[in-house]
């Protein structure tokens, strides 16, 4: 479906996200993330769980340097992105697709234009201005819209869609980048339970079909257990659990979220 298919399998094998000793301090001396290290490879999906305010969003934004980390390294397919700035950083960000809790679509633009926005890292600004996107990009956008079932909505404005449809557009936009990793920041928190399940299935399916490592911040522990292959629990700035969803015990959950009464 995408140009990656022509690539030898070897390049896919290199697709990975590696976080090494990541520290983030908003206030000097008070780290919100303290020495986070883990690696995600291949098509594996990882859920990050933790109480509100533990730095899940900060962690995911440190990966593409929307928030610059205080120290530590982030490697995307082997490239250290923490030292990059300017044009090099923009090039590196193209390799990192991101899906947001509030979808972050440009409301007044059409669905099609929102999907094409995923190519802005590749397209010269004057082309974007004149809306002269490459034919391949437009074909790819239509293919993606077809696959997420929204091709009939291509010319509608994004603000006319429902929450679930908007999130699908947000995901299509991220895939348009032809990324090496996919980040999702609470992708289902603004959605109803049924739509949440559909969005999780879509994310997992795309991770599979595009050989993308997937990193999801998620509130819903049950959803995380059901769909992801690995769970990382954050508490007090560090990783307190890193393992299979099945191995996640009530003891672990107590440590991650604190208290016990809510588990009964």
């Amino acid at each position: 479906m995408m140009s990656d298919q022509n690539n030898p399998v070897g390049t896919h094998a290199k697709r990975s996200l590696k976080i090494e000793n990541l520290v983030k301090e908003y206030v000097p001396g008070k780290p919100i993330l303290n020495g986070i290290s883990f690696e995600v490879k291949g098509t594996s999906s990882v859920a990050i769980i933790g109480a509100s305010g533990t730095g899940k969003s900060t962690l995911i934004r440190c990966v593409n340097k929307l928030i610059p980390p205080t120290s530590g390294n982030v490697y995307v397919s082997g490239e250290n992105i923490t030292k990059l700035t300017g044009k090099e950083l923009r090039r590196a960000r193209r390799k990192i697709g991101m899906v947001f809790q509030e979808f972050n679509l440009v409301e007044r633009l059409s669905v099609m234009e929102n999907v094409l926005c995923g190519r802005l890292g590749y397209v010269a600004p004057w082309r974007a201005w004149m809306r002269k996107y490459q034919t391949e990009d437009i074909d790819l956008a239509f293919e993606l819209l077809e696959s997420i079932g929204l091709v009939d909505f291509a010319h509608q404005r994004a603000d006319s869609l429902s929450g679930g449809q908007r999130q699908r557009v947000g995901i299509a936009r991220a895939i348009m980048q032809e990324p090496h990793v996919l980040l999702a920041d609470e992708p289902t928190s603004s959605l109803d339970p049924k739509t949440s399940v559909e969005i999780m299935e879509l994310l997992l399916g795309l991770s599979e079909s595009h050989s993308l490592p997937l990193l999801i911040n998620i509130h819903d522990v049950e959803l995380a257990k059901r769909y992801t292959g690995r769970v990382i629990g954050l508490a007090n700035g560090g990783i307190v659990y890193d393992g299979s969803p099945a191995g996640l015990s009530n003891e672990n959950l107590k440590e991650i979220y604190g208290g016990a009464s809510w588990l009964e």
């Binding site: 633009l109 995923g118 802005l120 600004p125 974007a128």
Partner: peptide, 28 residues
């Protein structure tokens, strides 16, 4: 709304494209 701007920045868009597609449609 800073959301769309954040999304376009995360996609690696240069400044002018972010302004064009992130800010301008909102203020037009």
């Amino acid at each position: 709304n800073p959301g769309p701007v954040e999304a376009l920045t995360a996609a690696g868009a240069p400044w002018f494209s972010v302004f064009l597609k992130g800010y301008w449609p909102q203020v037009a």
